[in-house]
């Protein structure tokens, strides 16, 4: 597996982490948490979307490099 492939795996894991954090913070907010929990959840959601966009650009830009 090349660095390119491992980077894609890493970004996928980072997206999952951001999604988990968003769910955790929004869950806290829904069960009576503070506005900071809401901000935290929204921020994590934006981070997840940003990482997905970055991953897509990365794959497109480095398409000539092997995954092996």
């Amino acid at each position: 597996m090349s660095l390119k492939a491992f980077h894609v795996v890493f970004i996928a894991a980072s997206v999952s982490l951001a999604a988990v954090m968003a769910a955790w913070a929004l869950g806290n907010w829904r069960s009576g948490g503070s506005p900071a929990d809401l901000a935290w959840g929204v921020g994590s959601s934006i981070a997840a979307v940003g990482l997905i966009a970055y991953g897509a650009v990365f794959i497109r830009k480095l398409r000539h490099i092997s995954y092996l």
């Binding site: 660095l3 491992f6 980077h7 795996v9 890493f10 894991a13 980072s14 982490l17 988990v20």
Partner: peptide, 13 residues
């Protein structure tokens, strides 16, 4: 470096 960072991605939550 990616491996070390991936460990943290699991460790943190």
């Amino acid at each position: 470096w990616h491996f070390v960072d991936l460990v943290w991605i699991f460790l943190f939550p």
